[in-house]
Amino acid sequence: MGADVWVLVEHSQGSPKRISLELLTCGRDLARATGGRLVAVVPGAGVQPVARAVASRGADVVYAADHPLLEPYTTDGYTTVLADAVREEEPAVLLVGSTAQGRDLAPRLAARLEAGIVTDCTSVAVQDGALVATRPMYTRKAIATVRVDGGGLRIAVVLPAMYPVAPPAERAAEVRPWPVRLEAAAIRTQVQEIRALSRDTVPLVEADVVVSGGRGLRGPENFALLDELARALGGAVGSSRPPVDSGWVPHDYEIGQTGKTVSPQVYIACGISGAPQHLAGMSGSKYIIAINKDPNAPIFQVADLGVVGDLFEIVPKLSQAVRAAKASP
């Protein structure tokens, strides 16, 4: 068995996703521990620009698995190609981002290859030959340390925002074409369309700043106040569950046990009480600011800065102040 560490690179519109660059940072340390190479694997159609972009991000070599049938992503197409590649090169570790694609692919690949797998990782290391990962369990009421022992491939599916993005290196790694053997008949599902939900902000799980609104927003129109603040801060808008259930915002806004897990640098909770199911999705944030008119709201127990007051008064003034602060640093 080899000692190489592979990172599966996810991309959109010709650029690697931020999660993949984070995985390269994580993979660098793992490769040091295993004594193997750090390999970035880029499946897709016309992936040369992506491959070149990741070549200067710390990988020792980049495999460009270019094939028309690998665009768009399908479970069958990716599983077939990656399983073949793993069987041929026998890497020790494969890092995959915890995204819709990564969560769809990684367990299927693990079952096909009889690989060990651990999902939702907040950290990954190699200790005494075992893959050791930490991950939240029981709706973040506990943190587990999981060991994946034994030989063969170990797959870790890593949450976004757990590792920093390294600055581009001066030396670019070699980009090698990976010979893809894939037939149309191997792909049983058919992607009919991908409907983009238009958002003019950064994706929620990639944002350094998340401005989040709860039932205290009172109606869909008031989310414009949060949009304004998020835009001023270069962040994204999320929500607790009631605004989603009431149809004020789309489903993909929801943060918490049944929604997304976010770990931004700052989480600004506006009109959110702080129910355990909501905390499950955001208590891993670096800093939490809460704006709530109820001084007894449980959110204040986890907030680094708690502001007791009316969000309708504070948020617009805050947007203005942030813009002013940005204009005159």
């Binding site: 060990g116 340390t145 994946v148 800065l305 708690g306 805050l318």
Partner: peptide
């Protein structure tokens, strides 16, 4: 293949500073 080595409580978050009063001060 995957075994639980240890389960622990998450690092406790402590309540930080609370600001009350005027909106301009809060901002």
């Amino acid at each position: 293949r995957a075994v639980l080595a240890r389960l622990e409580s998450p690092p406790a978050r402590r309540a930080g500073r609370i600001v009350q009063g005027d909106a301009d001060d809060a901002v």
